[in-house]
Amino acid sequence: MNLTYEILPDDQAVQCKELCNELMGYQKSRAVIKPELFDSMNFETRMLPSMGSALHNHLVAVKDEDEMIGYVYSNVSPKITYSNDFATFFDLDSVSGDYVGCLSQFYIKDGYRQYGVGSKLFEMSMEWLRQFNEVEDLFIYVSNGNENALEFYKRKGFVVTHDILDGFITVLRNRKR
């Protein structure tokens, strides 16, 4: 393996399109609650709108030679972004400031997991999120059935606070250190 990590500018997010769509398929394959909700989720309906509504975006891609094998997308957004027609992701009054940080999407191709790639991408995301003084609360949303991701984030210091959409998504939270 010859892994390289690259921060992509917003206008190059399309480089992660295939992996984003693969992530949606992976989440559907693991889901036990409402897997059909993933049918309409893809790069155009998930990543692009999220990037468009965020104040700040951070997209890190990891490649093995020229093959894209993983990415992490994080953002800083107004907390009101997380109360919409789809769901209210957390109690808005529980966030002291106007902005939250979110590790929004995280995917590593099978065959590259368990080599520290996830920990490296996670740390790059957290380091970026910690630089925003106006952000105190960090959130991660894990789709049902993805127990490996849930346990990974818990080991990294995030705490499960609640489920939304009848258990479709588990909300994890951490106060910025």
Rank of each mutant, 00 (worst) to 15 (best):
D39G: 11
S94F: 02
K109M: 00
C16I: 15
L92H: 00
R113H: 05
K79V: 01
I33H: 10
D137W: 04
S143K: 06
E136K: 15
A61S: 12
E22M: 10
D91Q: 02
N75Q: 13
Q12N: 08
R113P: 02
G25A: 13
E127D: 14
V95P: 02
L23Q: 09
F86P: 00
G118P: 09
A54L: 06
F89Q: 02
V32I: 11
F132P: 12
V76L: 07
T81W: 00
P49Y: 09
G116R: 03
M47K: 10
L37H: 09
F122K: 10
E22F: 01
D64M: 01
K17T: 03
L138Q: 09
L129C: 12
R113I: 08
V117K: 04
V14M: 11
Y26P: 00
W128D: 09
L129T: 13
E22V: 03
K34M: 10
L37S: 10
A61K: 15
M51L: 12
E36S: 13
A31W: 06
P78A: 08
D137K: 14
E36G: 08
R30N: 11
E136L: 08
F106Q: 06
N57D: 08
G25H: 12
M68F: 12
D98E: 14
C16T: 15
I33P: 08
V95N: 04
V95Y: 00
D64H: 01
D11M: 14
E136D: 15
Q27E: 15
Y115P: 06
G52F: 00
Q105W: 03
L92N: 04
K28C: 03
T81H: 10
E44L: 11
P78V: 09
L121P: 10
L23S: 06
